[in-house]
Amino acid sequence: MTDHILIERHGAVQIIRMNRSEKKNALTRAMYATMSAALTEGDADPSIRVHVFLGVPGAFSAGNDLTDFLAVATGAGGGNEVWDFLMALANSQKPIVSGVDGIAVGIGTTLNLHCDLTFATPRTVFRTPFVDLGLVPEAGSSLLAPQILGLQGAFALLGLGEGISAERAVRAGLIYDVVEEDGLEGAVLAAAEDIAAKPPEALKIARDLMRGPRDGLVARIREEAEHFRERLQSDEARAALVAFMNRKKAR
């Protein structure tokens, strides 16, 4: 467990709150482990009917902690925490609602592709700079983003690394609604509580029908992960990650 992830309960709603504000919610392996455990245990708990992801004011998530990336890139190795989280996310048996405010980079964007409803604030920008770091898309985004945004919209997000504003994201179907900062959590919890009040068996069947079989998504996440691991060991990715870290230190 880590204080950087706070798990709360509001009736039948489980809130998973990323709480590493000093690093703009950059996700460490320990944070991934806590979130995957919360999803898995919540799915197994009949008293929980909805999962909610929240961040801190101004930062949903800045993506993966680059120190962890560099550890893998320099041969120090890494565990299965990210993989476990992605599997728990892709296979979640209960609806997921997210509230995004401000920074949403990398997994801070792709996590929302797995959500049933995402609310964001006007200052939110969704961005996936994978290729800029010598890496490839993850979390099944190479499959899900083209389904939502079309091929060219997905390429702009995942290949070009272009930021997508909240207003544009809602028009494109990437998120559900845009709400003001002071109303974000209220809107998210109201939607989650509404979902939790629905007949759970009927809702599960409806959700499964809309999502379809998970096999293709899981296979794509696995394929992405293989490329991602290979890329982390590449000279291209190491150089890009080190250059990015040096730019951050120089600021």
Rank of each mutant, 00 (worst) to 15 (best):
R251T: 14
A237E: 05
S98L: 09
F53Y: 15
T121H: 04
L6H: 08
S47D: 15
A196W: 03
N19T: 03
R238H: 05
G216A: 12
I175V: 12
H10M: 06
V188F: 03
I195C: 03
Q93L: 12
G140E: 09
L133V: 01
A239N: 10
I103F: 10
A73E: 07
Q93H: 08
D84V: 02
T109N: 08
C115S: 15
V125N: 11
L209G: 02
Q233D: 15
A156D: 13
T40D: 09
A243I: 07
I16D: 13
A219V: 01
D3K: 07
T34M: 12
A190M: 04
E8S: 08
P122T: 06
K94A: 07
G42D: 12
E138G: 09
A166E: 00
A190I: 00
V52N: 09
A73H: 00
K94I: 06
H10L: 08
I221E: 10
G212I: 02
S234K: 06
I221F: 04
L66Y: 05
K204C: 02
L151F: 06
L66I: 12
F244L: 13
M87D: 11
T2Q: 09
A26W: 04
G134A: 07
V13R: 04
E226W: 08
E22M: 02
V136F: 09
N91H: 13
G55Q: 07
A239I: 01
L184R: 02
I148K: 03
L217T: 05
L113I: 05
L203G: 03
E41Y: 01
R171Y: 02
G216K: 11
I205H: 11
L86T: 04
Q152I: 07
A59L: 02
E162K: 15
L174E: 04
G134E: 07
R231G: 10
A169S: 10
A196Y: 10
A37L: 14
L160K: 08
Y32R: 00
E167G: 15
D194P: 00
D101M: 02
A62P: 00
E81T: 06
G140I: 01
A202R: 13
S36L: 00
A120N: 10
L217H: 11
E236N: 13
A172F: 01
S142E: 13
M245Y: 00
A172T: 00
N64M: 14
A192P: 07
Q233F: 12
Q14V: 03
L70G: 06
